[in-house]
Design a binder for these strands. Structure first.
Lengths: 194, 194
DNA sequence: CCTACCGATCGGTAGG
DNA sequence: CCTACCGATCGGTAGG
């Protein structure tokens, strides 16, 4: 028989990850203590350790959940029949939407990766690399002039630089929307603007 | 009369900052202890505190020294008589050169700014903003088509995203040189490639 | 699910 | 009497 406590087990786990994302994003992984997290969750430290074996496991969960969303966007877009240029624009908008919608998790993924233990870090890095490779294939298809064998990776990373760096400055309440920023980044990569 | 030991005072201070940059870059400000720093310098903690009143002062020095270099590059370039496009290309190359040459300090500046006490952080942020404004003026001059009032800041930040993000992936021993990457970033902003 | 704790290590400072 | 510097240890707090 199922136990009663199992009913909100997943909700509690998710709430912990959500508060952890907020704390880690604002203070850094080392700057936010498990006691801080417990307080934010309105619980004791022991409760946290009931749901997760270690602070690093919570960090992994924050990153993993976000990366899952990003990977989903890539699969959706690359599975379509649209031309490469359309796919790249579409994916850029989806990425920006996820970056803004999950800004805390995104910051944590970008800032605290080296606080994961090696095996966990390797898992994340492998999946990040798959994301990058998918985008690189689109960019190579759209910009055969620039994406020479030696420039292909740098070009792709400059693209990720544009959109990943938004976490440091983009304000959802600011003048420009995330779609406008995504469009601008796509235009720059596509080189269609002159 | 000058004391003999004062002769290497500045050298020792600089050595501390240099080791701190390396440690903070690889483990983060909170992940590297003053004891680690002392060990890296082959000295005692007390020696560190003889030269700097606190760990945060060392962090400030790491960032300040790097920002001074970047500001110098901006002044050199904007003071020339070259056309805006030439200035932007030139500045992009100089930035990339400084980013690679002072990779540790650059990482620290980008990753650990929020571990500075508020007043110190405000000083750094103010000077960063001046850098950004100077680049924005060049971009606005070069791309009047894209740099509408509302798109001006996002466009500038996308540019900084391209070059700042290089600290996560660029390898000086890799296939592409920092000048090639700088050129690619400049091309994308200039939109001259199609 | 909490209070009460642990081994260790933190940034910073004492006397000499 | 100064400066530069050391070994040892301070009061608090970290993850668990």
């Amino acid at each position: 028989m199922a136990r009663k406590q199992a009913a909100d087990y997943e909700q509690r786990r998710e709430a912990i990850v959500d508060h952890a994302a907020r704390l880690f994003a604002s203070r850094g992984f080392l700057g936010a203590s498990v006691a801080d997290l417990a307080q934010a969750c309105g619980a004791s430290k022991s409760l946290i350790y009931h749901y997760y074996p270690s602070k690093e496991d919570i960090l992994f969960e924050v990153m993993d959940s976000h990366l899952l969303q990003l990977t989903g966007a890539v699969e959706t877009v690359t599975g379509s029949q649209a031309p490469a240029e359309r796919k790249l624009r579409d994916l850029t908008h989806r990425f920006m939407g996820l970056y803004v919608g999950a800004a805390d998790r995104h910051k944590v993924l970008l800032n605290d990766l080296n606080h994961l233990p090696p095996e966990r870090r390797a898992m994340i890095v492998t999946r990040q690399r798959a994301l990058i490779d998918a985008v690189q294939a689109l960019i190579a298809a759209v910009r055969p002039d620039l994406a020479t064998p030696r420039a292909r990776r740098p070009l792709t990373m400059l693209f990720f630089g544009m959109i990943n760096w938004t976490h440091t400055w983009f304000d959802p309440k600011g003048a420009a929307s995330s779609d406008e920023v995504a469009e601008l980044a796509a235009e720059l990569i596509l080189g269609r603007t002159r």
